Amino acid sequence: MNDQARRATRPFRFGVVAPIGSDLAMWRDSVRRIADSGYSTLLMPDVPTWQPAIGPTLATAAALTDLRVGSWVYAAALREPWNTAWEAHSLSVLTEGRFEMGIGAGRPGIEVELGLPAVSPAERRARMRDTVAALRTFDGSDLHTPVVMAVSGPKSQALALEVADGVTFVLPSDDDRVETTNRVRDFPADRDIELGQHVAAVGDGVAAFMAGPNLDTAALRAADSLVILPSDPAAAAEEIQRRREEIGFSYFVIGAAFADTLAPVVAKLAGQ
């Protein structure tokens, strides 16, 4: 029996990465619309100097609606563990348990671009481990902040298996369906961990802050990549159901630009 066969089938849930554009009022309206459409989680990218800081932005979103909120994802290359853990714990307290901490190594070279010292892959993983450990200490016995870890290679996967509540796989855009399926199925089923998928493109559109601007959607479809979903809601719903059945993905994260397009999918599948 393979690992996927041993995993419990989780109900679907859907998150939206909703960076703030130039118009704050429009962003607030978008957050309310996302909540009204049945999405579970409002997420913010960790891109200092490009977007307002995650902490105050998510606190604002949580005050506007009853959505869960989360980081997608804290970049360990940019962050010291103690401070990140304290911010995450504080958001859990202020939202009364509606915060989810997403954390990953961070895009290669992002710290150098921002004028910070280079951080090795090993140090990035160490920061991720130390951040989760500090968060558990701050939470104590009365609070458990869910941790979603972005993973790629075997070392980060092993760390997630040890300390995370959920994982999202950093998938190369040129991976086809078979490669992605094998990559996820190789992730051990020793613990019941939620499998999330970062969907960078829908139809012919690419989500802001979820992929590079030159991502070729036609090439993704030709490769049968799972980084993309159809823009037709019926086809998208069918594909999402297939991905849970064949691979185990149950948490799907899309860009805010596609929240209205896929709202019928959320209405049909959320919680099922």
Results as ranks from 00 to 15, higher is better:
residue 106 G to R: 00
residue 202 V to A: 05
residue 129 R to A: 12
residue 202 V to K: 02
residue 176 D to N: 14
residue 263 A to V: 03
residue 145 T to L: 10
residue 181 T to I: 12
residue 97 G to T: 09
residue 259 A to I: 08
residue 176 D to F: 15
residue 223 A to P: 02
residue 73 V to T: 11
residue 100 E to A: 11
residue 54 I to Y: 01
residue 199 V to T: 04
residue 250 S to G: 14
residue 219 A to R: 12
residue 70 G to V: 02
residue 72 W to S: 09
residue 155 K to A: 14
residue 82 W to C: 08
residue 187 F to T: 06
residue 99 F to M: 07
residue 30 S to Q: 06
residue 184 V to A: 07
residue 18 A to M: 04
residue 227 V to N: 05
residue 165 D to R: 02
residue 233 P to G: 12
residue 115 G to N: 04
residue 263 A to F: 01
residue 175 D to W: 10
residue 3 D to C: 10
residue 140 G to T: 13
residue 120 S to Y: 09
residue 39 Y to V: 04
residue 55 G to F: 04
residue 85 A to D: 02
residue 226 L to A: 06
residue 25 A to I: 09
residue 190 D to R: 07
residue 123 E to P: 03
residue 37 S to N: 06
residue 226 L to K: 01
residue 216 D to S: 10
residue 163 V to I: 14
residue 98 R to H: 03
residue 259 A to V: 11
residue 220 L to P: 02
residue 2 N to A: 06
residue 116 L to V: 03
residue 91 L to T: 00
residue 80 E to S: 12
residue 30 S to G: 08
residue 237 A to S: 15
residue 212 G to E: 14
residue 64 L to S: 09
residue 104 G to I: 00
residue 156 S to G: 13
residue 119 V to D: 01
residue 253 V to K: 00
residue 195 L to V: 02
residue 265 V to D: 02
residue 6 R to S: 09
residue 97 G to P: 04
residue 173 S to T: 11
residue 228 I to H: 02
residue 241 Q to N: 11
residue 84 T to L: 08
residue 41 T to V: 14
residue 28 R to Q: 13
residue 228 I to T: 07
residue 90 S to A: 09
residue 178 V to F: 07
residue 51 Q to G: 01
residue 227 V to Q: 06
residue 34 I to D: 00
residue 69 V to K: 00
residue 54 I to S: 01
residue 37 S to K: 05
residue 183 R to Y: 11
residue 50 W to S: 09
residue 130 D to S: 11
residue 7 R to I: 10
residue 55 G to K: 05
residue 32 R to T: 05
